Amino acid sequence: MAECGFYLSLRPDGFDLHMSAGPEHLREMRERVFKELCAAGVEETVADAARLVASELVGNAVRLCGPWAPVVVQVTSSPGEVLVQVHDPEPAVAPRRRHQRPDNDRSESGRGLWILDVLAPGWTVHPTAVGKQIRCRLPYQGRNCA
Results as ranks from 00 to 15, higher is better:
16 D>M: 09
87 H>E: 14
132 K>R: 15
66 G>R: 08
2 A>Q: 14
58 V>K: 12
93 V>I: 14
44 E>K: 06
8 L>I: 10
94 A>Q: 14
127 P>K: 05
39 A>W: 08
2 A>L: 03
44 E>Y: 07
139 P>H: 09
99 H>C: 00
114 W>M: 11
31 E>W: 06
138 L>M: 04
131 G>R: 10
12 P>W: 02
57 L>T: 03
49 A>S: 12
121 P>G: 00
55 S>M: 08
109 S>Y: 03
11 R>Y: 05
104 N>S: 10
3 E>D: 10
138 L>T: 03
109 S>M: 08
142 G>S: 09
1 M>A: 12
86 V>Y: 06
27 R>H: 11
78 S>R: 10
82 V>K: 00
119 L>I: 09
129 A>P: 01
24 E>V: 14
120 A>T: 12
141 Q>D: 13
47 A>S: 04
129 A>Q: 11
29 M>K: 04
6 F>Q: 08
72 V>Y: 02
101 R>P: 00
44 E>V: 03
53 V>Y: 05
102 P>H: 07
67 P>S: 06
98 R>T: 01
133 Q>G: 02
45 T>K: 14
31 E>Y: 07
100 Q>G: 06
120 A>H: 10
32 R>K: 15
124 T>N: 13
99 H>K: 07
63 R>A: 15
81 E>A: 10
27 R>K: 14
69 A>W: 11
17 L>Q: 09
139 P>L: 08
63 R>H: 09
138 L>H: 08
25 H>Y: 05
35 K>V: 05
